[in-house]
């Protein structure tokens, strides 16, 4: 197993990805704080992980103004668990005046009252509000060992609350079980959603990143899993999301949502600081390239 952090040599020898345009801006609004401690979390979020703190509305607003001057197209919110952030609803409300927003949540804090308030915010906004709820199996038996006991039912009750309020969340599933991404697995997830009375089920499957808690689970990268210039496709690195996005945390601006626990993934303090190429020196860069990852909906 190789260390996740690249050496200075590896950085110098790595291919570089250009930022084509800043289309997508991510905010780690929940920091690395979460009411769960999932075994596959690539940022090892937990109730005691203060690697990144929650962001305040005021900080988010500063970045929204800079983002507007750069013509950013869409905003994504993640953590940790975004809804642990007491200002989360206000943050979404303000963001929706700038552009469409998507929030990635574990669904546990989506009670009826909050779901109704979110639906109200979505209804009043100029742009689309999308809610993505994470789940890791189509049954308690397959989900709960990953996300924690009892979470399957609590996640689905969050999804049901959103649906009752008039929102239509996207169920987001990682490939923690091989069958999750199979045709059979997808059909099982769709039927879980239909049983909740959702007639327009929406589903997204994401690959795993062998970093953070997932690496502790024993699936870290091998030394050959790094990108070389010769790996570049004919049309360059534009399929990687770091060619069109950046990630803001309470400690500055990172190249992407995956590398926030790598100090070398930090590119600067403002968006302007990060308008430059980034060396694809991390093992996680290999995953994005090979699996064609887009964290977007």
């Amino acid at each position: 197993m190789s260390s996740v952090s690249p050496t200075a040599d590896q950085e110098a020898q790595s291919p570089r990805v250009e930022l084509r345009h800043l289309d997508t801006l991510w905010f780690q609004v929940g920091g690395t704080l979460c009411n769960l401690a999932c075994t596959h979390c690539f940022v090892s979020c937990s109730p005691t992980n203060h690697t990144h703190e929650m962001m305040r509305l005021e900080e988010v607003l500063t970045f929204l103004d800079e983002a507007a001057s750069l013509g950013v197209k869409e905003y994504y919110f993640t953590g940790g668990e975004p809804f642990l952030n007491p200002e989360m609803e206000a943050i979404l409300e303000h963001t929706l005046a700038y552009g469409p927003a998507t929030v990635l949540t574990n669904g546990l804090l989506l009670d009826r009252t909050r779901s109704r308030r979110l639906a109200g915010i979505a209804e009043a906004a100029d742009y689309s509000l999308d809610v993505r709820v994470s789940i890791d199996g189509y049954s308690a038996e397959s989900n709960d060992p990953i996300r924690g006991s009892g979470t399957f039912d609590r996640i689905l009750s969050g999804v049901a609350n959103l649906t009752a309020a008039g929102l239509n969340p996207v169920l987001t599933v990682t490939e923690v079980h091989d069958e999750n991404s199979s045709a059979y697995g997808k059909e099982r997830f769709f039927s879980v959603l239909r049983r909740l009375g959702i007639d327009k089920p929406r589903l997204k499957i994401l690959p795993l990143f062998p970093i953070g808690a997932e690496a502790e689970r024993g699936t870290a990268y091998e030394s050959w899993q790094r990108l070389r210039s010769s790996d570049a496709p004919a049309d360059g690195w534009d399929h990687l999301q770091c060619s069109t996005s950046r990630m803001v945390t309470d400690q500055g601006v990172w190249v992407c949502p995956i590398l926030v626990n790598e100090p070398s993934g930090k590119m600067g303090a403002t968006l302007a600081d990060t308008l430059r190429p980034f060396p694809l020196a991390h093992a996680a860069c290999w995953t994005c390239h090979v699996y064609g990852v887009s964290c977007r909906t």
């Binding site: 952090s5 090892s44 992980n49 601006v253 790598e262 590119m267």
Partner: peptide, 25 residues
């Protein structure tokens, strides 16, 4: 503690490494 890649390090160590990382125009 902070998670630095796959390691756990004292929070202060991670914070000072990130403070020094990147460029500031």
């Amino acid at each position: 503690l902070a998670t630095w890649g796959e390691r756990l390090v004292p929070l202060g160590q991670f914070r000072s490494a990130t403070a020094a990382a990147g460029r500031t125009l």
